[in-house]
């Protein structure tokens, strides 16, 4: 009798700690943030003392030029970075998907940039971009070119931040695409080879379409993460010069800690979250639509037989 009781309780006992911690330290804060976004609240106040201002924070943000600028910078950063990384990562995976000695060592070396702290990545690149001791300007100078204002000019700063992120995250796309490539059915490849498909035709008509589901998930994961990049930019430029590299995450943290406007920062966080939710759902919907179409085509093909 007692064991039966214990058995019935076991799953709850096993789940309880995880549920408790996530409720207290994850769901509660998120709910709290939504509530805080309707308040005029500064860090020295208790939340109960903060004044309820309704949608004022949200409306105020929409007409705030600096916020719109940083929203735009965020979108631009994510779009540029993800496009470059997808092209480079998938390209490299297609190129390196060969039976060569030392492939596992190569993969190990490639994941190093992702494992190292983003703060340290920022540090390394800041040193390399340094106007006088950095390797880039040193090399340029010794070759007789003008030094480039890597971090002190608006558009160069944006490019520098993008380069650092591409360095850090292209391997992620590479590893996932390589895994996808290596799990493709050998029979399809062989059939294509027997039919005399050239290397390019194999890539365009066989490999890429078969990899598509994985590529879409990879794209989604990378896109979500691109909106979370913060530390590298913080160390490299701290959002400057001007607002040229101030992505939303950075602006949220500055609004909270420098301008001491917690309500506004919370409203900003909500905008960012809404943006991410929309993107994710759009991606899911697209994925479902593609799958549905494929299923329909398959069915049609079967009926023809």
């Amino acid at each position: 009798m007692q064991t039966a009781n214990a058995n019935r309780l076991t799953p709850y006992l096993f789940l309880a700690p995880a549920a408790l911690i996530m409720a207290v330290a994850l769901l509660y804060p998120i709910g709290y943030m939504i509530y805080a976004s309707f308040l005029d609240w500064n860090p020295s106040q208790r939340i109960g003392d903060a004044e309820f201002v309704g949608l004022k924070n949200y409306i105020g943000l929409l007409s705030d030029a600096a916020f719109r600028e940083s929203f735009f910078v965020t979108l631009k950063f994510a779009a540029v970075v993800v496009t470059l990384e997808m092209v480079l990562g998938v390209g490299l995976a297609l190129l390196l998907d060969r039976n060569i000695r030392g492939m596992s060592m190569l993969r190990t070396l490639f994941i190093l940039p992702m494992m190292i702290a983003p703060i340290v990545v920022g540090l390394m690149w800041r040193y390399m971009y340094h106007p006088s001791v950095g390797i880039f300007n040193r090399t340029l100078k010794s070759l007789g070119f003008e030094p480039i204002p890597w971090l002190s000019d608006g558009s160069w700063a944006f490019a520098s931040v993008v380069i650092a992120d591409v360095w850090q995250w292209t391997p992620f796309i590479f590893i996932l695409s390589l895994a996808a490539l290596q799990s493709l059915p050998q029979s399809a490849m062989e059939a294509a080879r027997i039919d005399g498909a050239t290397g390019w035709q194999q890539i365009v008509y066989i490999k890429l379409p078969l990899m598509m589901p994985v590529l879409i998930v990879t794209l989604l994961l990378r896109l979500i993460d691109a909106f979370k990049v913060l530390e590298v930019i913080l160390v490299l430029t701290n959002g400057g010069p001007g607002l040229s590299t101030e992505i939303l995450s950075l602006r949220i943290s500055r609004t909270a800690s420098e301008f001491r406007e917690l309500g506004e920062a919370a409203a900003m966080s909500n905008y960012l979250l809404i943006l991410l939710v929309i993107l994710t759902f759009a991606m899911f919907a697209y994925n479902k639509a593609v799958e549905a179409r494929a299923a329909r085509l398959r069915k049609a093909a079967e009926e023809d037989l």
């Binding site: 998120i30 979370k228 949220i252 943290s253 920062a265 979250l273």
Partner: peptide, 9 residues
């Protein structure tokens, strides 16, 4: 959920 979103709450 970006860490920056968790910052305030």
């Amino acid at each position: 959920v970006p860490p920056a979103v968790l910052l305030v709450p």
